[in-house]
C-alpha cells in the first residue's frame, strides 16, 4: 500500500506537478482512480494500455437485483479480461464490487463483496493467478449513475476491474 501510494504520488508529480492530499489514498477513497487520471492510462490505440483495457476489453460486469451471478455478457467481458491479463503479465487488478442504492448500508457492502468475488473466481477459474487479484466492496457508497430508477441502478450493480502495474 505504501509503495503504491508513493508511486502514484510520483505519477501525479510528473503529470500534475503536485501531490495532492488525495494522492495518499488514491484508489481507496473513491474507487475511480482510472477515470480521474486519464493521462496515466496511456493511449487507447496501444493494446497494452489501461485505456485499451477500459475501452476495448471492458472493465466492468453488471448484475441483476440482489444477485451476484454472472450472465453470459458478463462472462464474455471477463474472458476478454483474462486474455488481456495473460498478455500483460505485469498488471494486477483490484475488483471493486458495488450495489445500487436500494438496500441497507451493511448488506450492500456484503453484496458488493459477493459481486467482486464472483468476478474474481471466474478470472481464477480461467487461469489468472489469484495473487494478481484483489477485491474491495464499496457497497452503495460510489454510484456511477445518480438517478433513482432502474436505468441507473442497473449500471451501479457492478464489479469493476481496476488495472494497475503496481505491487499492492
Amino acid at each position: 500500500m505504501t509503495k503504491f501510494s508513493l508511486y502514484l504520488c510520483a505519477i501525479l508529480i510528473i503529470f500534475l506537478g503536485g501531490c495532492s492530499q488525495n494522492a495518499s489514498t488514491p484508489f481507496s477513497t473513491n474507487g475511480m482512480l482510472n477515470s480521474s487520471s486519464s493521462k496515466f492510462e496511456g493511449n487507447v490505440s496501444n493494446p497494452s494500455s489501461i485505456a485499451f483495457f477500459k475501452n476495448n476489453v471492458g472493465d466492468r460486469v453488471l448484475f441483476s437485483i440482489d444477485q451476484s451471478d454472472l450472465d453470459q455478457s458478463g462472462k464474455d467481458i471477463l474472458l476478454g479480461q483474462v486474455k488481456w491479463l495473460q498478455a500483460n503479465v505485469d498488471y494486477k487488478i483490484i475488483i471493486e464490487g458495488h450495489a445500487d442504492e436500494r438496500g441497507t448500508r451493511e448488506y450492500n457492502l456484503a453484496l458488493g463483496a459477493r459481486r467482486a468475488n464472483s468476478a474474481r473466481e471466474f478470472l481464477v477459474s480461467r487461469g489468472i493467478e489469484s495473487s494478481r487479484i484483489q477485491t474491495v466492496s464499496f457497497g452503495k457508497e460510489r454510484p456511477v449513475e445518480l438517478c433513482s430508477n432502474e436505468n441507473c441502478y442497473s449500471e451501479n450493480r457492478r464489479a469493476v476491474s481496476v488495472v494497475s502495474n503496481l505491487n499492492f
Partner: peptide, 8 residues
C-alpha cells in the same frame, strides 16, 4: 462482520 472470499 468479516468478509472473506465473498462470504460475510
Amino acid at each position: 462482520s468479516l468478509e472473506q472470499g465473498g462470504n460475510t
